[in-house]
């Protein structure tokens, strides 16, 4: 990371002459985007910031996300601004750009929210013991607001890649997975009737939430925001991959009825648990497909990475979770 280039980007956005970048450090995790933490010191004070950067050109996610990284970055920034307006806790966007020239990729610079994102710490550290029992309800409250975001304020979004898109990506991947195929077949034959079409976060789950001992401080990672059935966000939050070994279904920290009750209160819309379960299974299939796609980025996409390769093997977990969910749904 060229800290001189970053300094001039931040100085321009803040409208100050000179900025000194201090404590620039890449954060671990994040297979598709880089995150950097830094402080921007200027004449009037210090800004605690995060740089989100999509290095290089377009990444082929094969339909799971948009291929146009620059456009996605701008969408992400617009979504965070609209989310803030409706009362969803999010970082404040300082500047976003699809121009790869200054920093080597499209980027967002945003405020750094104090708190923890590492799911296992949120589930196990004593620091969060008091807040854990209320997290599921807080998520329900936040999602109820999030689904009231005005889509007209955002650039055009994908709205139909879910089930058919996943099948297409799986077909193109070269991997034959009987469990994913069985799940897709069942999902296709039991499609819920869509009652509402709203902005959907697309990746609202434990690990993408900044949590402090006071509660949920911010929802991060808006790159998969799209239009769709809002129940998708509830199902994804409950998908087993995002429980990180915790037993309770909602993010590993809470119960379905806590999530649904708070959602109903904040949105005014009743939750049909069978529809959420449909999305939970779809989320499990999606995670399985993403595992394959990530491995293929390493194997054939020219992005060599032991992390991407290793994610591929997590397909086995998703197949196992599909098996259990299908048994539950068909028994």
């Amino acid at each position: 990371m060229d800290s001189g280039a970053l300094a001039s980007v931040v100085a321009g956005a803040l409208g100050v002459a000179v900025v000194e970048i201090s404590g620039l450090a890449r954060l671990s995790g994040g297979a598709s985007r880089q995150s950097w933490s830094f402080d921007a010191i200027h004449a009037d004070g210090v800004e605690e910031l995060i740089l989100r950067l999509a290095p290089g050109g377009a990444i082929d996610l094969g339909g799971v996300g948009s291929n146009d990284v620059g456009a996605t970055m701008l969408l992400e920034a617009a979504a965070m601004r609209e989310a803030k307006r409706v009362g969803v806790p999010v970082p404040a966007v300082l500047v976003a750009s699809a121009d790869p020239k200054p920093l080597g990729g499209s980027f967002i610079v945003m405020s750094r929210i104090a708190g923890e994102t590492i799911a296992r710490k949120i589930l196990r550290d004593d620091t969060f013991a008091d807040i854990r029992p209320s997290l599921a309800a807080q998520c329900g409250d936040i999602l109820g607001k999030l689904h009231q975001m005005n889509p007209a304020t955002l650039p055009p979004m994908n709205d139909s890649y879910q089930l058919d898109g996943l099948r297409a990506v799986l077909d193109g991947s070269g991997v034959a997975s009987p469990m994913l195929e069985l799940a897709l077949r069942w999902l296709d034959q039991h499609r819920p009737r869509e009652t509402r079409r709203t902005v959907v976060h697309g990746d609202f789950r434990n690990g993408n939430l900044v949590i402090s001992p006071e509660g949920v401080r911010a929802a991060l990672d808006w790159e998969l925001v799209h239009l769709g059935d809002p129940m998708e966000d509830l199902g994804w939050l409950c998908t087993r991959a995002w429980r990180f070994g915790g037993k309770p279904p909602v993010g590993g920290f809470g119960e379905y009825d806590e999530l649904f009750g708070a959602y109903e209160q904040s949105s005014g819309v009743a939750v049909d648990p069978t529809v959420v379960k449909w999305w939970e299974l779809l989320g499990t299939v999606k995670w399985g497909v993403i595992c394959i796609v990530q491995a293929n980025r390493h194997l054939v996409g020219g992005q060599r990475s032991v992390e991407l390769a290793a994610i591929g093997r997590r397909l086995a977990e998703q197949e196992y979770d599909c098996l259990n969910l299908l048994e539950e749904l068909t028994s």
């Binding site: 087993r240 429980r243 070994g245 037993k247 279904p249 093997r313 997590r314 397909l315 086995a316 977990e317 197949e319 196992y320 259990n324 539950e328």
Partner: peptide, 15 residues
């Protein structure tokens, strides 16, 4: 396959 990839994932089944 789970036992090979990540044996910790084979816990008691959750609803």
């Amino acid at each position: 396959n789970v036992k090979i990839a990540n044996p910790k994932h084979l816990g008691p089944r959750e609803g």
